[in-house]
């Protein structure tokens, strides 16, 4: 299945901003995080199709996955 992965802030360094990527059906989000070599402790927010998500959630064809380090503002 193909999903779109978007990375933000420091996660972009040495990786990418947006990329279509292919995974076996049913891959959980945490697998994508591992594959991208992002330490799990650095994950601040995961958004799947514009909603907050958990690392265990399974991905589906056409999903949009966004990964953010812990950042903030205001």
């Amino acid at each position: 299945m193909q999903i779109t992965v978007k990375l933000f802030a420091t996660f972009r360094a040495g990786r990418f901003a947006v990329e279509p990527r292919t995974y076996p059906p049913g891959t959980p989000i945490v697998e994508v995080i591992r594959e991208l070599d992002i330490p799990e402790a650095q994950i601040g927010m995961i958004m799947l199709n514009n909603r907050h998500a958990e690392p265990e959630q399974e991905l589906h064809e056409g999903d949009n996955l966004s990964l953010f380090p812990l950042v903030g503002g205001g």
Binding site: F8, N50, H52, F68, V71, G73, G74
Partner: peptide
């Protein structure tokens, strides 16, 4: 310690955009 000094508060544009 890291997010605000690097990107400023404007890091929120992409975050809020993703969150709709």
């Amino acid at each position: 310690g890291e997010g605000l000094p690097t990107f400023g508060t404007n890091v929120l544009v992409n975050i809020l955009n993703e969150a709709g």
